[in-house]
Design a protein around this nucleic acid. Structure first.
Lengths: 341, 341
DNA sequence: CTGTTAGCGCCTTCAA
DNA sequence: TTGAAGGCGCTAACAG
């Protein structure tokens, strides 16, 4: 490090006071009130000398660092980067940093990542995943406060923050039902994952609440790819009584659905209504017609993660160990009113 | 921090040696050779006690930290996250961390970000942007080694690493020319930015090299959105001698182009060939037909950034201050052979 | 209200 | 080959 090194002692000397005094005013301690003039003198000296606090020294002396560790595979995938963004913003606001360590499928890597993070004296840990699922948390993560984001552990030992898949599925189906559709298809994401289960459950609930009996023959299993959306849509539209609306398990499925619909000479948002899920910013607003979809609140997940962590670090009791965050609808142009009531 | 605190002194005591000795073996110093038995004894003691080095103490004492700072707006945008990924991997491999600080449009914010990073004793700085462009670097960034990634400063004071836009444009046009197309349209990204200028320049060069005289009436200015691709394509296809192939300035433009083409009852990859740019992983491989495009080497940019930084920190002379990294083609299914030679 | 005094955990030079 | 001692820059009791 080639930084010039101006220390507190230097500032103290220049201002003609002791290091303690400098430490107090520079850290804005109010408990012992120091004359405004002294204060000013010190601040000025610091400025003139170009004093810059040394975070390592501070961490060492105070035994508390200004950063949290984030271990995640997200850094490796473009899908959920907003959780990093949210976490970062929240941390940054308090002058804290996020140390992000890449998570890896290779077994044991997570443990190593956590280990490195602990060496850096992180005050807390966030473990985040790209897609909502169950994980097993490395043991050493228990050494500091730790919260799970977009994932959860089997026995709920760690507080976790996840999207409200059920609510999202409900919202999606409701949009369609409210538009007058009664014959609604669904193409799922990969079977068995929380997103699939939750969204489908929510959808069925919404249908029932709107007086529509869910029909399992209208639900075709997909795998989250555009291809599965394409083929799923073809299957649905080939039924004898084809749906007038389809709730696609995610935006990419919707992308495939668009293609299948257009290929049949039908029009999305007129003949067939589509609702997606995820609200991928690169995709949804750019489709033709622009896709009505349900947003995954990644940024909020990240923010909630650090704020929960903050609470834990400060020792506040946390009331809610399983926080679920709503998935808000993004109404655009792929849904049409259908028939009359 | 609630970590149990086992220090080197503890290990030393347990192993019956001095702290110095412990420090030497734990850091793998070879210069003074310590008996294998002692070594083993120390390692075992460390393991048993659960010793974990304290990075803050190490940084303080050695005056060199194990991290680089990355200031970027990328953390805020899903478009170029791979540069973080690449940088992180490269850093992580050496046991180093990346401290990433959000960059902000608000003037002065970058300076503040750099300031915070310097306080953390970063050994070097990377400044990265989402899209290739010129920036002005905050003054304080000069205090440590600093490299620019996906951007550059006006007077080339900082080493910078950027994608080879010209080469990419050349490759795109060449794919089309080699497929036998001679009437090739182009829809640009936002006018005046390096991507637009470089790609267009490369394209024209490729055409000339293939005996095709560039025709400016075939070049329609866009703005990088799917909408501009849609309208640009309509314009192109309405010409009296419409192009048989279109080089779209980016993948989203290509997305719009697909829609316009399909709407006219033509088939992408048969009647009209399309080449994109960027290779957005969420988009390009999911389009129908899958989009042939030119990849932006984000990950490599990031990796090159930290490896250059490593060199600088170690004081190695750097020969190349302006590194440009190739944009490799991704051949998929949107280009068809055209006519005979 | 301000200054003195100890460390924090580790690295590193110097002796032994 | 190993041990002793000093110091990195800062915080935090505790005096004055």
């Amino acid at each position: 490090m080639s930084q010039q090194s101006v220390t507190m002692a230097d500032v103290a000397k220049a201002a003609g006071v002791s290091r303690t005094t400098v430490s107090f005013v520079l850290n804005g301690r109010t408990e012992s009130s120091i004359p405004e003039t002294t204060r000013e003198r010190i601040n000025q000296a610091a400025r003139e000398l170009g004093y810059r606090p040394n975070a390592a020294a501070r961490t060492l002396a105070s035994k508390r660092s200004s950063w949290f560790g984030l271990v995640t595979e997200i850094a490796t995938s473009p899908f959920a980067t907003d959780v990093i963004k949210g976490a970062q913003q929240a941390a940054w606001k308090d002058g804290n940093f996020l140390l992000v360590a890449p998570s890896d499928d290779e077994p044991g890597m997570d443990q190593r990542a956590v280990e490195k993070l602990l060496e850096q004296q992180v005050g807390g840990l966030i473990i985040a995943t790209t897609w909502h699922r169950q994980i097993t948390v490395p043991d050493n993560a228990k050494l500091v406060p730790c919260v799970l984001v977009n994932c959860f552990d089997a026995d709920g030992e760690f507080p976790s923050i996840v999207p409200d898949e059920i609510g999202g599925g409900y919202a999606a189906a409701e949009i369609l039902a409210r538009a007058g559709h009664t014959n609604i298809g669904h193409i799922t994401v990969a079977m068995g994952i929380p997103a699939q289960i939750g969204r489908q459950t929510g959808m069925k609930q919404a249908l029932r609440d709107h007086g529509i009996e869910p029909d399992d023959t209208k639900i075709v299993p997909g795998d989250g790819t555009a291809d599965s959306g394409y083929h799923g849509t073809q299957a649905l539209l080939s039924q004898t009584d084809p749906p007038t609306a389809i709730f696609c398990g995610n935006d990419r499925i919707a992308m495939g659905a668009y293609d299948a619909i257009k290929e049949r000479g039908l029009r999305v948002g007129e003949d067939i209504s589509i609702v997606g899920f995820d609200d991928q910013e690169i995709l949804a607003p750019h489709m033709r017609p622009k896709l009505t979809t349900i947003a995954l609140p990644f940024e909020e997940l990240g923010m909630a993660g650090v704020s929960l962590l903050n609470q834990m670090v400060e020792g506040s009791p946390i009331e809610n160990r399983q926080i679920t965050i709503g998935c808000p609808p993004r109404i655009r142009s792929s849904v049409a009113m259908h028939g009359q009531r």
